[in-house]
C-alpha cells in the first residue's frame, strides 16, 4: 500500500474536492507555482480561475473570499505564515464568522483558511513561528488541527464541505509524517471527534497537533512506569468534550500537551473544563509554550520556549505521584 505524507494528503484532499465540486477554488500567494507544494499540479489541471494567484494583500483577499463565498463559491485560502491569520483576524472572526448570525441565517460563508506550516520555523525568526489556533477557538471559529496524514485528508475535506468558515492548522513539524494508507480508506472526518492514538489506564495525555507524535514517544518511553493514554481532539473548535470525559472517566488523571501560549490557551481551557465538569482524582497539569514569542533564530533558545518531551514526562510523573486533591 502507498505511503502518504501529510503534505501530500493536503494536496490530495484539496484536489479531490476541486474535482468533486466546481464551486471550490484556491487562492493565495505563490499558489500558481505551488511554493508550499499544497497546490502542486493544480494550475495545469484546474486553470488560473480556480487556482487564483493573489498579490500580497491579505486583508484584501480574505475579504474577497468572504464576498465570493456570499456569492456561492467555496474559497480555500492558503496562507504561508501563521501570523498572517492574525493580520486577517478581523476579516475571519468579525466579517466571515459572524455573518450567518448577523443575517438571521440568510447566508453562510463557507471559506477554508488553510495554514499548512503552523508553528516553529527554525531560523525564520520570531514573526514566522506562532501557533495561534487557540485564538480562533476563543472567537468560536471552527478550527481543526490534525496530527496525521489520514486525519489531515479527512479534516481538510470536511472543512471545505462545511458551510461555515473553518481554519485548518497543519503543524509544520507534522508535514513530513508519513502513513501507509489505502486511498480507498480516506474519507471525511467529522468536526469535534477526538481520537485515541494509544490506550492507557493511568493518565490521559491530551496532545494537540504535531505534539501527538511526541506524546506517543513519551508514552512508549514510560511504558514500564505507567499506562498512558494519548488522546487527540483533532479539532479544537468544536471540541470533543464527551470524548475527553470518557477517557478521563477511565484514567482519572490528566495532562495537556499543547503548543499554544500558556495564558488563555487550549491547555487552560481543557484543564478548566475538566476540573469543572469531569471527575479527576488528582490535580491536572499542562505543558505549553510560555506567553509571547518563540525567538525563532537560535536553536538552543527555541528549544526551551516550546513544549518538550522531557517536560511532558515530568508532568506525567508529577500527576501520577499526586496523592489527590
Amino acid at each position: 500500500m502507498p505511503k502518504l505524507s501529510y503534505l501530500k494528503a493536503l494536496n490530495r484532499a484539496l484536489g479531490d474536492e476541486m474535482t468533486r465540486d466546481e464551486s471550490v477554488f484556491v487562492l493565495g500567494e505563490d499558489v500558481n507555482f505551488a511554493l508550499t507544494n499544497v497546490t502542486a499540479g493544480f494550475l495545469k489541471k484546474f486553470g488560473p480561475d480556480r487556482v487564483l494567484e493573489v498579490p500580497l494583500t491579505e486583508q484584501g483577499f480574505t475579504n474577497f473570499a468572504t464576498g465570493a463565498a456570499m456569492a456561492g463559491r467555496r474559497p480555500v485560502i492558503e496562507f504561508q505564515i501563521p501570523f498572517l491569520l492574525l493580520l486577517v483576524f478581523e476579516q475571519i472572526t468579525n466579517q466571515a464568522n459572524k455573518f450567518l448570525m448577523m443575517s438571521g441565517g440568510q447566508r453562510s460563508v463557507p471559506v477554508t483558511y488553510l495554514m499548512p506550516a503552523a508553528g516553529w520555523r527554525a531560523g525564520w525568526g520570531a514573526q514566522h513561528s506562532d501557533q495561534p489556533y487557540s485564538m480562533f477557538a476563543h472567537m468560536g471559529v471552527k478550527t481543526v488541527l490534525p496530527a496525521t496524514p489520514t486525519d489531515a485528508y479527512g479534516l481538510l475535506t470536511t472543512a471545505i464541505r462545511d458551510d461555515d468558515p473553518v481554519v485548518f492548522f497543519g503543524p509544520l513539524a507534522a508535514l513530513t509524517v508519513r502513513e501507509i494508507v489505502d486511498y480507498e480508506d480516506l474519507r471525511p472526518i467529522p468536526l469535534g471527534s477526538g481520537r485515541i492514538h494509544r490506550s492507557g489506564t493511568d493518565v490521559t495525555v491530551v496532545a494537540l497537533g504535531h505534539l501527538v507524535h511526541e506524546a506517543l514517544q513519551v508514552a512508549e518511553d514510560l511504558a514500564e512506569e505507567a499506562s498512558v493514554e494519548v488522546w487527540d481532539p483533532r479539532s479544537v473548535y468544536p471540541f470533543d468534550w464527551a470524548g475527553l470525559a470518557e477517557s478521563v472517566s477511565r484514567t482519572g488523571r490528566l495532562v495537556v500537551f499543547d503548543d499554544s501560549n500558556r495564558s488563555c490557551g487550549m491547555g487552560a481551557e481543557i484543564l478548566a473544563t475538566a476540573v469543572e465538569e469531569m471527575h479527576l482524582t488528582a490535580p491536572p497539569k499542562r505543558v505549553t509554550r510560555p506567553d509571547g514569542a518563540i525567538v525563532g533564530a537560535v536553536p538552543e533558545l527555541d528549544a526551551v520556549l516550546q513544549p518538550t518531551k522531557e517536560q511532558l514526562a515530568e508532568a506525567i510523573r508529577t500527576v501520577l505521584k499526586s496523592p489527590g486533591w
Partner: peptide, 14 residues
C-alpha cells in the same frame, strides 16, 4: 472600509 474587498469578491464570482 471592509466592504470594498467583499464587493470585489462578489463581483468576481458573479
Amino acid at each position: 472600509g471592509h466592504g470594498a474587498g467583499i464587493a470585489a469578491g462578489i463581483a468576481w464570482a458573479a
